[in-house]
Design a protein around this nucleic acid. Structure first.
Length: 316
DNA sequence: ATGCATGAGCT
DNA sequence: GCTCATGCATA
């Protein structure tokens, strides 16, 4: 509730911002992205039944790896450290079939507001629903591009161009630094823009935006927001320079699981063979590596996300 | 800067 | 149970 960010006011952003309105961020590059990124998903299914031998091999390698490392000094049981906040609803259904891609997984949430987080410090960050399913499932080529009468311009081709995004991210970082603002400051200042649906963002997200380690869609969705902030911040600073005014203006923490190098290597070996293991395989892997099943599942999810980004940037 | 985690929305 | 956006915690 009262969890204010204890940030040093590097630079005070005041809410004298123009009334920007919310823009649905549609992405016409969605089709492209999916075509480029989701191919591997489909292909992975093909191996669903062929991976047995490879898996066996990976398991063998993993077993050796672990055996060796456990003989040595091993920091801690990756499994033993844990969240104090909640126990993930780890579905322990042991009846899952080997349908591999089964769940499949569709679009996915989007630019969520974390206001539902059990975290106490979860102020109202999140961009709630920007882009949302919109960016995800938009297939119609040019639905409504051009400009909105809002503060944010809607998506144009140039906005979805990877090259342009990259250039913007670079400029953004340089100008942010010139303003003497930290990534965290930017994230917290976003809420001051008063753009409907736009809350604050974390330092992590700003960092990832600058380093292009977000998904393409995510980059597209965030760009106009950060651009709006940048313009606002620079405008505010100009004002400050023009008129040399005189005035200036707890709870339980989540524990991060740390998967030891040997186990991680094993996971990578499994991933190379089957990026989308069935629930049962995940359980098996978890047992072999002595990790929680959920930890393994999440690891695979995160790994897939990472690979997707890498592949995208690789072919662009 | 990045690893592991959560939660929304969807299949 | 997946994807995706995003966050906390930490190296």
């Amino acid at each position: 509730m009262m969890s204010m960010n204890s940030k040093q006011p590097h630079f005070a952003m005041h809410p004298s911002l123009p009334e920007h309105k919310y823009t649905t961020l549609h992405s016409s590059s969605e089709a492209i992205r999916r075509a480029c990124l989701q191919a591997p998903q489909l292909q992975s299914n093909i191996f669903a039944s062929l991976d047995e031998t490879l898996l066996a091999r990976a398991e063998a390698l993993a077993a050796v790896d672990i055996a060796v490392s456990q003989g040595k000094t091993h920091p801690f049981k990756p499994d033993a450290t844990y969240h104090t906040m909640n126990s993930v609803p780890c579905s322990s259904n042991t009846t899952v079939h080997d349908g591999s891609g089964g769940g499949g997984g569709g679009g996915g949430g989007g630019l969520i507001s974390t206001s539902a987080h059990p975290h106490p410090h979860s102020h109202m960050h999140g961009l709630s629903h920007l882009s949302h399913q919109a960016a995800m499932n938009m297939n119609s080529p040019l639905t409504h591009h051009g400009l909105n009468n809002n503060g944010l311009s809607s998506i144009n081709d140039s906005d979805t161009d990877p090259r342009e995004l990259e250039a913007f991210a670079e400029r953004f970082k340089q100008r942010r630094i010139k303003l003497g603002v930290t990534q965290a400051d930017v994230g917290n200042a976003l809420v001051n823009l008063k753009i409907p649906g736009v809350g604050s963002l974390s330092q992590s997200t700003i960092c990832r935006f600058e380093s292009l380690t977000l998904s393409h869609n995510n980059m597209i969705a965030l760009k106009p927001i950060l651009q709006a902030w940048l313009e606002e911040a620079e405008g505010a600073q100009r004002e400050k320079l023009n008129k040399p005014d005189i005035y200036s203006g707890g709870e339980k923490k989540r524990k991060r699981t740390s998967i030891a190098a040997p186990e991680k290597r094993s996971l990578e070996a499994y991933f190379a063979v089957q990026p989308r293991p069935s629930s049962e395989k995940i359980a098996a892997i978890a047992e072999k590596l002595d990790l929680k099943k959920n930890v393994v599942r999440v690891w695979f999810c995160n790994q897939r996300q990472k690979q997707k980004r890498l592949k995208f940037s690789a072919c662009h």
